[in-house]
Simulated assay, not measured.
Amino acid sequence: MKRMLSLRDQRLKEKDRLKPKKKEKKDPGALKEREVPQHPSCLFFQYNTQLGPPYHILVDTNFINFSIKAKLDLVQSMMDCLYAKCIPCITDCVMAEIEKLGQKYRVALRIAKDPRFERLPCTHKGTYADDCLVQRVTQHKCYIVATVDRDLKRRIRKIPGVPIMYISNHR
């Protein structure tokens, strides 16, 4: 069995040998640089100034399904929650996800095709709705995200200035 020589081996010629790494001494008086993510200008003291009535609410697939189970009128319950005019928005990915669910979720599809809902076109490839919603919310901080999905809520909580709307106890 053939074995390779290490680049630090004594038998190698000086020019072929690997040079030992020199440790740079750090100056204790020098300022330490660290990279801190820049917060968008719309967040003033952590308050999102782009949010205001009429509220644009990005609706997730399971939010529609849970509203049907809880027997809630989607637009009316949103207005009851926020005490202002609400415009529910549905992306193409969420619409495709509802269509993929098939015949069992035909009521959810009919609700999603309501003319009161605003359709948002998607430019990316694929139809994974969670990634689409997170991407749209990080770009534009003017949305409230309506979801019941735990993982999506966890992902959105990491984005500063984005409120989450969810259903619990039939409200």
Results as ranks from 00 to 15, higher is better:
residue 140 H to Y: 03
residue 117 F to G: 12
residue 129 A to G: 09
residue 142 C to W: 06
residue 97 E to A: 06
residue 150 R to C: 05
residue 151 D to K: 10
residue 41 S to R: 05
residue 22 K to C: 11
residue 132 C to K: 03
residue 123 T to K: 04
residue 40 P to K: 02
residue 20 P to I: 15
residue 42 C to P: 12
residue 105 Y to K: 15
residue 161 G to N: 02
residue 147 T to P: 00
residue 82 L to E: 07
residue 128 Y to Q: 12
residue 78 M to D: 02
residue 123 T to Y: 07
residue 145 V to T: 01
residue 104 K to F: 15
residue 80 D to C: 09
residue 18 L to M: 13
residue 5 L to C: 08
residue 82 L to W: 04
residue 39 H to A: 08
residue 71 K to G: 03
residue 44 F to K: 15
residue 134 V to D: 03
residue 55 Y to R: 04
residue 55 Y to N: 03
residue 144 I to C: 04
residue 110 R to N: 14
residue 165 M to C: 11
residue 161 G to E: 05
residue 42 C to K: 01
residue 109 L to A: 09
residue 18 L to R: 13
residue 90 I to L: 15
residue 54 P to K: 13
residue 86 C to H: 02
residue 70 A to M: 03
residue 110 R to P: 03
residue 118 E to K: 15
residue 21 K to F: 06
residue 88 P to D: 04
residue 66 F to H: 05
residue 116 R to L: 01
residue 43 L to A: 02
residue 49 T to E: 06
residue 158 K to S: 11
residue 24 E to G: 14
residue 106 R to Q: 09
residue 25 K to L: 06
residue 58 L to Y: 02
residue 124 H to P: 00
residue 57 I to N: 00
residue 4 M to C: 07
residue 57 I to G: 01
residue 48 N to I: 06
residue 52 G to I: 03
residue 132 C to P: 02
residue 103 Q to K: 12
residue 168 S to A: 12
residue 79 M to S: 04
residue 139 Q to D: 14
residue 34 R to S: 07
residue 49 T to A: 13
residue 38 Q to H: 10
residue 83 Y to P: 03
residue 1 M to E: 06
residue 4 M to D: 05
residue 93 C to P: 00
residue 136 R to E: 07
residue 116 R to N: 11
residue 134 V to G: 00
residue 112 A to I: 04
residue 131 D to E: 14
residue 18 L to V: 12
residue 159 I to M: 13
residue 124 H to V: 08
residue 80 D to E: 13
residue 168 S to G: 09
residue 111 I to C: 04
residue 169 N to P: 04
residue 76 Q to S: 14
residue 82 L to K: 01
residue 66 F to L: 05
residue 50 Q to N: 00
residue 144 I to Y: 04
residue 162 V to P: 02
residue 77 S to T: 12
residue 109 L to Q: 14
residue 28 P to A: 10
residue 90 I to V: 15
residue 71 K to C: 08
residue 12 L to E: 15
residue 123 T to L: 01
residue 155 R to G: 00
residue 92 D to N: 13
residue 58 L to M: 10
residue 41 S to G: 03
residue 77 S to A: 11
residue 168 S to F: 13
residue 146 A to T: 06
residue 24 E to K: 15
residue 96 A to K: 15
residue 79 M to G: 02
residue 138 T to M: 10
residue 122 C to L: 03
residue 154 R to A: 05
residue 90 I to P: 02
residue 149 D to N: 13
residue 66 F to I: 05
residue 19 K to P: 13
residue 138 T to N: 06
residue 158 K to E: 06
residue 152 L to E: 00
residue 120 L to A: 01
residue 171 R to H: 13
residue 164 I to F: 09
residue 20 P to Q: 11
residue 6 S to G: 14
residue 129 A to Y: 00
residue 153 K to N: 12
residue 88 P to Q: 07
residue 3 R to M: 08
residue 37 P to W: 15
residue 141 K to V: 02
residue 45 F to G: 04
residue 43 L to I: 08
residue 130 D to E: 09
residue 7 L to E: 13
residue 158 K to L: 06
residue 42 C to Y: 11
residue 13 K to M: 04
